[in-house]
Design a protein around this nucleic acid. Structure first.
Lengths: 202, 202
DNA sequence: AATATGATTGACCGATACGGTCAGGAAAGG
DNA sequence: CCTTTCCTGACCGTATCGGTCAATCATATT
């Protein structure tokens, strides 16, 4: 990892990073050619190897960087100071949208990284972005104030529903290749408000 | 397409078909090697080329076959004689589950085919399994009896929610590589019953 | 102007993967 | 036996890709 990479003008550095997110989020690790990343960044393949000594280093740098960026944005937005469940969801959404404006393919990159199966990478990815625990366990751990939600509502199922629908939305956009932060904010906000209305105690 | 393929003992023919579904559902068309399909089917690559004159022919056969199978199962289950919306959803689920028991990767194969981007294939896929119209339009076309659902419920959003969550579930299982029809039936039935409870008029 | 230093490239290499072919060996049937 | 069908391993040409390298370009220094 050549230090000069960090001395690059922001524009060029971002171009390389985004090119990496882009290509890796659309194919598996193995099927993401360095040449394509270089082309997407507007530089030569050789120069890419000048900054990163090999493909693995680039990939792992992007893993690390993506979590740093996410963490940064989360604290910047003060996500977890909220107490209303749907507000938390919405602020989480805000984070993704803000991030997506600067790094259109970041969340898709992370999504793919969670599921990357390459033997040589799997272990290191876990260290960098954390193992994905599955929505079932997340739903288990949820501690919510029952009195704020509709009577008799199964909160675990509610969470499952919300999680799966958001995930389904993301996958759909990923496959379609259409990434539009504003559209995404609009769609998912509408969903969240729908849920708030349906699930809240009257 | 060698006619002798259809004279094969069912077991062997199914092995080949399922191998095709399996491999094509896990990679893109381009990245699905014929050798891997052959290996998964327990035959030699040469024999696979004996039955199908090239990769494209095999792929398109699988497209055709998967829709035929689905269509068959749908009429067999008499899906659309039901009138209750959630019953329709559940019978659709039954179709998928039944099919999945014989062809574990069929629905994943179709899901991938909808999004396959290969220039040479795109047109023919549409002809065989139909173009995917997007859930938004599906939600538009929905004609439901408002009086059966909770008062003031946004039916379009309800459908969007249900569609995205089911889709999210499928993607999640696809990526995790864990395909278990019974598990799927259990999970999605639970979701459907949850929705029925929340969305129905009290 | 000469030189040194780092940035950047195109051409190239070795390895590998893959679609497809082919000559010929088993099997099955007569 | 012989013929036809089934089936395989070895092989080929091509394309791709990670990575290298010598050469060039830009810039700053002497």
């Amino acid at each position: 990892m050549n230090e000069s990479f960090f001395q690059l003008p922001q524009e060029k550095r971002m171009a390389i990073i985004n090119a990496g997110f882009r290509v890796f989020s659309r194919h598996s690790y193995k099927n993401s050619p360095m040449s394509e990343i270089a082309a997407a960044a507007g530089i030569s393949k050789s120069l890419l190897f000048y900054y990163f000594k090999n493909k693995k280093e680039l990939y792992l740098f992007l893993c690390r960087h993506s979590t740093e960026l996410t963490q940064q944005e989360i604290t910047r937005q003060g996500c977890y100071d909220r107490e209303d469940f749907f507000d938390i969801f919405l602020s989480g959404l805000k984070v993704k949208v803000q991030l997506m404006k600067r790094y259109p393919d970041l969340s898709l990159f992370q999504l793919k990284a969670y599921y990357e199966k390459d033997k040589e990478l799997r272990g290191e990815i876990n260290k960098l972005i954390g193992e994905y625990s599955g929505y079932e366990t997340q739903a288990q751990m949820l501690k919510l104030d029952k009195s704020r939600f509709a009577e008799g509502l199964d909160l675990k199922m509610m969470y499952t529903d919300m999680y799966l629908a958001s995930q389904g939305y993301l996958w759909e956009k990923l496959q379609g290749g259409k990434i539009d932060p504003d559209r995404m904010e609009k769609d998912l906000t509408a969903l969240a408000e729908f849920w708030r209305k349906v699930y809240s105690r009257k």
